[in-house]
Write a protein that binds this DNA or RNA. Structure first.
Lengths: 222, 222
DNA sequence: GTCTATATTTCGATAGAC
DNA sequence: GTCTATCGAAATATAGAC
């Protein structure tokens, strides 16, 4: 009888649903463990415990530890690229760059583990996602640099180096995820409140936008 | 006879010289391996190979892997703090903050491994140097925030949040070390030249200084 | 698909000759 | 102080019952 039920479920496509749900649970646990312990420090046992299943099940869904890790990094990269939309559909430079900063800060807040895994991967020489850097990221970067250069040519912003402006945005926004523990320690050991996050986002956006001449000089400054 | 020579050397203080030289060789190798593989991914064998000595010798100079790691992190932190001098002995805000940015960029260039080890340590929750964060770093930060606030009160710079300004400087300058591999990949796979480093430093310093109103608006911008 | 038990490998650390 | 050989712990991965 149970056999019949199982076959019906397979026919109805439930099997892939279950598979997807289990995979997502494993991936969420893995993202956290990889972020907090690094690839070498993470163990399949820790990930299994956090996902609430025996270790052997992980190997049923992901052949090796490295396969699992690769999927985690790929997930983050996808989220990363989506934030580019703000860039393209913007009315002007201030809206485009400001919106991108805001979107990146929001990702740092919502996906701190993913950001850390990405940072760790790049810091160790990108052994797993070097191809992404050379293809997808390089292409994305060149496109955005052209957009920035266009704003410069139109006189919307100062003649900054588009490449280093992008690096500054990446560095600053991701810092709030990657160095979140340090920021929390310097905040009396407490996570940033909603208000403090708002202040952080505004600070970052205003200093950068003013720094590239997309905002008027600060009030009270001649 | 050799015994006599050895005792003479000990009497002359050579023994500690040898010890120091060996320790420094091990620390240099460890810094590189920890940076490239993370604490968990690093092995004593790899460090020994890079230092050109058998694995057992490492345990003769450093009792455990964690002891060795702790020394590496402490070394970096010391270099970090020295860069603060530019901050204190400055004539005005632009010189103080600009000099600090320049010093931090120089450290990113000269000590990329150390920066990565520090980043990795903080990303993993600072299990080894949490006490440094809560004492030395917290004290240092509060002092610098007061200096920045003074410049704000004197009208030298805009009324930015000193804390987030510091975070931006840390994030941006350390990015050139921690994400050096990504930057190199986006630079056609080649390390930055002297000229490119100069451009990077100038870009960072100018955007930030202009962003806080320590520089006049960019030329050509109303 | 799930789980227990285990095979195999790897690594940190040490013993002991030199 | 240095080095070879090795122990013991821990981790990845798998075998095989259910």
């Amino acid at each position: 009888m149970e056999e019949a039920v199982r076959k019906m479920r397979i026919k109805a496509g439930r099997r892939t649903d279950i598979r997807r749900a289990r995979e997502e649970a494993i991936l969420a646990a893995a993202e956290k463990v990889f972020a907090e312990a690094g690839f070498g420090g993470a163990t399949m046992q820790l990930i299994a415990d956090m996902a609430g299943m025996p270790k052997a099940n992980l190997h049923y869904y992901f052949a090796t530890k490295e396969d699992l890790y690769r999927r985690v990094v790929e997930n983050i990269f996808t989220i990363w690229l989506k934030a580019a939309d703000c860039f393209d559909n913007a009315a002007d430079a201030a809206a485009g760059i400001g919106g991108y900063i805001e979107a990146k800060m929001e990702i740092s807040r919502r996906h701190p583990f993913g950001s850390k895994v990405w940072a760790s991967e790049v810091m160790h020489g990108a052994p797993v996602i070097q191809d992404y850097l050379e293809t997808a990221l390089r292409g994305w970067t060149e496109g955005r640099m052209r957009a920035i250069q266009r704003w410069i040519d139109e006189g919307q912003i100062a003649a900054v180096d588009p490449r280093h402006l992008l690096y500054m945005i990446w560095a600053t926004t991701q810092h709030y995820a990657d160095f979140g523990h340090q920021i929390e320690t310097l905040n009396a050991g407490k996570p940033l409140t909603d208000r403090q996050w708002r202040a952080a986002i505004d600070s970052v956006r205003e200093i950068i936008l003013r720094g590239i001449g997309a905002l008027p000089p600060a009030p009270g400054k001649p």
